[in-house]
């Protein structure tokens, strides 16, 4: 099966009120497609964390989710400001989130860790002052 777009959505910086909407819509689509629940759960967690990452840390961005016969691919692209040290960003507990964000139960340094844990393959293109692009794949 050729890769097809399941969902593509712009995400605004700081838009907490809509946090999780892309993941929720995606979850409904996956259920209607009959995607196995474990695969759906992993894709949903990865998408949710990348969605919140754009809202909390970036200047805004976009999430695109693609499906093929082999995998579901979540692509999260943002407008910067980039991650200076990727290895550090993936350390459990490491976070640059402010107190407001932490007070809502985010920014505990577990989000990117979840993305890595629940995806089968993950690539990150970023750097200080650059746009970031995450490509996370979950295989069937």
């Amino acid at each position: 099966m050729q890769e097809q777009i399941l969902i593509q959505s712009k995400i605004e910086k700081g838009d907490f009120t809509r946090g999780g909407e892309v993941s929720s819509s995606l979850k409904d689509i996956l259920r209607k497609l009959g995607v196995p629940s474990d695969t759906s759960r992993r894709v949903t967690i990865v998408t949710y964390e990348l969605e919140m990452n754009i809202i909390i840390h970036s200047l805004g961005g976009e999430i695109t989710v693609l499906i093929s016969s082999e995998q579901i691919k979540v692509i999260a692209e943002d407008q910067g400001p980039g991650i200076p040290d990727v290895e550090q960003a993936f350390q459990p507990g490491y976070s640059t989130a402010d107190d407001f964000v932490r007070g809502m139960g985010f920014g505990a340094g577990m989000g990117l860790n979840n993305v890595k844990h629940y995806s089968d393959q993950l690539t990150v293109e970023t750097g200080q002052g650059k746009k970031s692009k995450f490509i996370a794949s979950v295989y069937f």
Binding site: I45, G105, A108, M110, Y118
Partner: peptide
Amino acid sequence: LSNVMARAQADDVWLTVHGHQN
């Protein structure tokens, strides 16, 4: 919330102090 996403199971009751939209 990231822990809840990863650990809470369908049909659990979830106990929290948060009362916001997320």
